[in-house]
Design a protein around this nucleic acid. Sequence first.
RNA 1: GCCGGUAUGUCGGAAUUGGCAGACGAGACAGACUCAAAAUCUGUUAUCCGCAAGGGUGUGUGGGUUCAAGUCCCACUACCGGCACCA
Length: 802
Amino acid sequence: MKYDHKQIEPVWQKKWEEAGIFHAEQNSSKPKYYTLIEFPYPSGQGLHVGHPRSYTALDIVARKRRLQGYNVLYPIGWDAFGLPTENFAIKNHVHPREVTKKNVARFKSQLQSLGISFDWSREINTTDPSYYKWTQWIFLQLFKHDLAYKKEMAVNWCTSCKCVLANEEVVNGVCERCGSEVVRKVKSQWMLKITAYADRLIKDLDLVDYPDRVKAQQKNWIGRSTGAEVDFTTTTGDKLTVYTTRPDTLFGATYMVISPEHPLIEKLASTIENMDEVRAYQEAAARKSDFERTEVAKDKTGVRLVGVEAINPVNNRQIPIFISDYVLVSYGTGAIMAVPAHDTRDWDFAKKFGLPIIEVVKGGEDVQKEAFTDCETGVLVNSEYLDGLSVEDAKKKITERLTETGKGRAKVNFKLRDWVFSRQRYWGEPIPIVHCPHCGAVAVPESELPLELPDVESYEPTDNGESPLAKMTDWVNTKCPQCGADAKRETDTMPQWAGSSWYFLRYADPHNNDALASKEALRYWTPVDWYNGGMEHTTLHLLYSRFWHKFLYDIGVVPTAEPYAKRTSHGMILGENGEKMSKSRGNVVNPDEIVNEYGADTMRLFEMFIGDFENAAPWNSNSIKGCRRFAERCYNMTSIMTEGGIRPELEGAFHKTIKKVGEDIEVLKFNTAIAALMSLINDIYNTKSVTREELKVFTILLSPFAPHVAEQMWSDCKLGDGFVSAAKWPEYDESKCVDNEIEIAVQINGKVREKLMVAADIDKDAAIAAAKASERIASLIEGKTIIKEIYVPSKLINIVIK
RNA sequence: GCCGGUAUGUCGGAAUUGGCAGACGAGACAGACUCAAAAUCUGUUAUCCGCAAGGGUGUGUGGGUUCAAGUCCCACUACCGGCACCA
């Protein structure tokens, strides 16, 4: 029979679903294994060829684990709240719920056509009230533990989405999603205190198996730094505290800089003589968007506060105070001591404003020409009791002194900011809070959850920065759950990251109505054993969900401190021209067309064979044919099968391949695993026949990669009972992976001059004797002095001559 | 500027972590089958010199360690990703 994927694939997909063989068992004595992929956002474009790269990879792992006897959970769901759906709904006057429903149906049929072994009985959807009930519940727990709070603050405002963005969503000063300008806007916002977990989010990276680049990126983003706070005073008698990582350079401070928004300015408004100039600078700084602020990063600007000076606590020297936007309000204390001799930014500023530069760390070039910032080699000078100390010792000593005299203290700072959690849009989880004129912000009682999203007439974002929900007065006006007075509901919704911050927990027990999941289910299934996803989520989803998980751990809801035991990341699939796939570049490949033309098995094989899983790889419509040929060659073996066991001449090849394929899957080397299967099939075809046992082992090895054709081979040739997807992974014998006779290279002075077939267990003397016995080697060493003879067992011989 | 990554034939990529560079696939070329084409099968395919046997050169660049370097060390370059006035 001819290989016809259109005949084979839908049949097996249906049989698997009917038999339910990919359903995770709820009560099982088997060891569990939880594989997870980032659940997709069901966009209107349908599945992208990038999705199956991740899904197929973990499908291979999940399928292999099942064959190895594990109870596997490989779930799927929909991260369906979010802006693109809402924008589409606005434009086409349909309810976002309907848009979501349609998109989900499309995604589902596309995913099912790929034969991914998801447990569809556990499908979840973040927009389902029975799901977001628990998203809201978690928010209320955060609120009750003072980790959710409302704050008036300058936020990132996307001018196009008309919506607040988290810091993580602003990329190069523009909106991550739409690319529009982001400006600062003062608004009252719900915030989540992720900073309370900053230290643990770094420290607990030691507990998990993540790629180093992911750990490094998270650590960078959290940005822990150690230093000291130093209390300066001013000539007006006010306190002015700075944060510095270089307290050792305190004697070299020649001026101070505070951010334009620093509260001290208002306090000293009557003392400052050039207040007009100061105000003008403040306004100019406020007008700048994030984009402009980073654009003009090179040139320093600022204004000196005339009429007030600061006093250095260690030497009582009076130094001027400036305002400048190179000092940020939101980091440290919003004020710095400037040490131009040992900080390049301070140096730039000092040069521009003609301020003194005093060297306090010796070891570099002339500090008048360039700042010396090295902490490793310098020695302190001009610093009284610190003179002669190394930078490190001086830091310790000055911090001790400051602490003793009450003028400072050791301090740790983080770049990480609290998470801006409000969105002024419709298609998200309503924040379950009621604002009461008497009681303030009050939690909606848990018994009233889910607080369902009301139907509104218009989803249009408003120009005044309020959520579309604000227009629903019937819904907004309510009673205070605490005192019963007239009160108003919170109208902001949660960001898209909310639902995805805990979804992996819901999969453990997706239909539970009394808890986000039962304790037993969580104890059995968590943590996730292997989580694969994109690098782009390292500082967003991955960090947010670790934070929520740690909080849930602290309040006793989940049994583990970390959600994911192991994380891996796949590279992007690029267009054929090596550029990122996008509509505008016209290089988008539609997975449906590939499945239709070549079949799901070929698609899966190709996506795994395309290159190193962790690196980006360009699509190539030519080499996909190689994978199709391979699938056909696999199937064609069924027509030449004869009875029998593994033939002796193929025994070594089989054992080696079992070993190689098994090991490669564990380390994400799907490309070389497939190459090994291709080599094995070439060996088989060289013998012009295949035996039943050979075909059986081969089919099992093939099944995680190309499950449909494997099932067809299994059933056509009656290789075993039931499904190959429920067979047993073959074992290999280490002793049979080595050949009896091997080829070794013979080098003279490091250059290969001869190849010899020798017994695998040959010893050094015998090997070298064999080499010298060869005519070619004998003639090359004749008359020369042998300096050294090296024998690398089963690899090579190197004879060094002179 | 800082942090991370990558660099290998015509192309995608292999190389057991110091031991025969180019597995596997694609493409190209040649041959078989065919009236012909497609498909399939069989060869060849890093590069230079040579009719050949054989020899030289070759893993971004320049040095180094070693009997032996794609792999280790030092100094660079280019590209990709992240962060960026974080004191």
